[in-house]
């Protein structure tokens, strides 16, 4: 218990200090763009406890989850297949690099024409924007599976499916996880962007709307909420990662 609190204290003192600094410096601010933090916080309470949660936070979180899951599954599955079939990989690689080079927000209008303005379009765009780091790190990790490991699997006649599930995938998993973490970041970005385009709810919409109606305090409270969402998403990711890859972290720093 004491150790956990010490760890939290260790990693939180700087953010706390910065918040305090913000609080003090902004206390008597009369700038319309930088209102006092106390005002922002009371606005935050008004906005998020719990008035707009249902309208703006829930759809964003749901879209993030769906988009990230879609990105993860397609990235890992495609990555494994491409990584295991080097000839396919050579052919597919330029296509991947072309698609990845397109800034995904540019595709929103096209996606809207093809898929409409609903949730499915947003989820697909979030996944499209976020999939690349997972796909690329899965391909790399699969290509660089240790040859001794593959020799072991072949010598003992481990069938293909078992080989994939119990050998290739676990060995690739630390690098896949690193890709997933970057993908998560991109998915959050895409959640906001997709809600800024012809949308009627969500955090992106909330911030854009605040900006357009010159509601500066709301703008700040929306930004804080987004930051908070990012932190929660990342912590949740770390939580699962440290459990699933326990063997990896423990074998690394024994």
């Amino acid at each position: 218990m004491i150790r956990i609190s010490a760890r939290i204290a260790n990693s939180l003192w700087l953010p706390a200090l910065l918040m305090l600094l913000w609080l003090v410096v902004s206390a008597h601010s009369s700038s319309i763009y930088f209102p006092p933090l106390t005002n922002i916080l009371s606005q935050f309470r008004k906005d998020w406890i719990f008035a707009n949660i249902g309208k703006d936070v829930v759809p964003s979180v749901r879209n993030l989850l769906l988009g990230f899951i879609l990105a993860s599954i397609s990235g890992v599955v495609l990555g494994l297949v491409i990584g295991l079939l080097p000839t396919l990989g050579k052919a597919v690689s330029p296509v991947i690099h072309f698609l990845r080079a397109i800034p995904p927000p540019i595709l929103l209008p096209l996606a809207a024409v093809l898929l409409g303005l609903g949730t499915s379009m947003k989820v697909v765009m979030i996944a499209f924007g976020g999939v690349w780091p997972t796909l690329i790190s899965t391909i790399d990790a699969t290509l660089s599976v240790d040859p001794v490991v593959l020799d072991t699997a072949r010598a003992y006649h481990i069938p293909l499916w078992t080989r994939l599930r119990r050998i290739v995938l676990p060995q690739a998993s630390p690098r896949i996880a690193a890709g997933l973490r970057t993908s998560l970041q991109l998915c959050i970005f895409m959640v906001v962007v997709s809600e800024m385009f012809a949308s009627k709810g969500g955090l992106g919409f909330f911030v854009l709307d605040a900006e357009q109606t010159f509601a500066i305090k709301q703008l700040w409270s929306g930004i804080l909420m987004l930051g908070l969402l990012g932190i929660v998403a990342n912590s949740a990711f770390s939580f699962f990662e440290s459990r699933i890859l326990r063997w990896y972290f423990m074998s690394q720093n024994k």
Partner: peptide, 16 residues
């Protein structure tokens, strides 16, 4: 066939 490789660190699976 039973086989034991030169580098045990690489032929045993650390996730099992």
């Amino acid at each position: 066939l039973g086989i034991v490789f030169q580098d045990y660190g690489r032929s045993l699976f650390p996730w099992m």
